[in-house]
Simulated scan of single mutants.
Amino acid sequence: MASFCHRCGTSLRAGDAKRMGDYAVQTAEGVTQLALISTVMPHTSRRSADNYRWAMVLSGVLILGATALGLLPIAIAAAAFLVPLTYIVYIDDVNLWEEAPAAVVVGLFVATGALAVLVSLFFYEWVFDGQWASFSGGGRSRGGIGALSFPALLIFAVLLPVVAEVAKNVFAVLLASRDAFDDMIDGLTFGVAAGTAYAAFETLVVYSSVFTAQEFRTESGIGSWIVVVLNVMVVKSLIYGTATGIAVAAFSGKGEGYDGFTPAYFANFGLAVVANIAFWLGVRLLAYLPFGNMLGLLWGLVILAALILKIRMMLQVALLEAAVEAAAKGDGSEDKRSTFLETFCPECENMLLPNASFCIVCGTSVRSSSRQAKRAMGVGSVPAASTPPAAPTNGGAA
């Protein structure tokens, strides 16, 4: 007996069209579950998600080990690029766009990284270097929060996040406006890639003194550096990526074609800006308290959790509403993502119905499957067995 409608994804047993208990990307999870990998890498299956999860955990342990040994240049550079490089591997692995799977995102990564370097140099070294020196220097230890420069706080915790978010969106939105990348999950992918790339290159500029120091190995303040590396490696990178992913996903919109610069896009762009401002205001102000670096890290995790839930709800609504619209327009045979006879769900491996948008057993969205899974499922190409026989020639059998 079917548990889900194969066209609109509605839960037939619960009668729940919104399916808050079953995440359409990976139905073993709930929509409000704080699961990072299935959120920022929606084309992964449960099996492949575990591979990325363990790869990031093991890499993170090695980076923290380098930090504990005082090898800060290695630790900070590796921490800055851990998430974005993992994301490039993910893009190449799931082969989202067969024509140029990794090249598209590598180009986005480099272009956004160049913008990040220019913006960071402008704020940290070329124009506001004096304010940055007073803001990041010894004011915390000499005068506490009373020595805080509010103009510097506004520049680096309010103005810079606004400018940075614009820079993160530029090339991601440009790619999302192309016909080949018109899906909301494509927009999310571009946004996460651009955001994490910006975070990596900004980190290189901010901590440039670490790379130019005469001593390669540091022996003092290791505990504080471990917290800083955790913030750079996980929290900052993922906040930048998820916030920009939300904005660009709203630009793409649901269903075929992109929505463009709609009120929904500007609302979600504003949400991304607010999340970044809230993160940096918290980090900067909490630094004046005892154990301020650790408190800043925890504050960042709270912001990240809120962004993850926002993305999951956006994708859930988009996948279900797009399927309903497609079902209202036709039987799905004209959809480029249509399934055919003898194709199987990549998540539970049960057979899919023809022209299905969802698996009737587990409810997984066909739209969120990777290219490899879709090829195995037969999506987008009619198998030879279903091709009608050619008309007989004159000499053929009657």
Rank of each mutant, 00 (worst) to 15 (best):
T32W: 15
G21I: 00
G30E: 12
A17Y: 10
L36A: 10
K18P: 01
E29T: 10
T10N: 11
S11H: 09
A49D: 04
G21F: 13
L12G: 14
Q33Y: 11
C8S: 08
C8H: 07
G9T: 00
S48K: 04
G30P: 09
K18C: 07
Q26L: 11
S45G: 14
A14S: 11
P42A: 02
L58A: 15
E29N: 10
A14V: 00
N51L: 15
H6Q: 10
Y52K: 02
H6Y: 15
A2H: 09
L36M: 09
R53A: 08
V25H: 03
S48F: 02
I37K: 11
C8N: 07
H6T: 11
R7N: 03
D22A: 15
A2T: 12
Q26D: 14
A2E: 14
V31Y: 12
H6S: 13
Y23F: 11
Y52M: 00
S48E: 06
Y52A: 05
G30M: 12
M41S: 07
E29S: 06
M41P: 05
R7T: 05
Y23H: 06
H6V: 10
A28W: 02
Q33G: 11
S3C: 09
A28L: 12
A28T: 14
Y23Q: 01
A49N: 05
D22K: 15
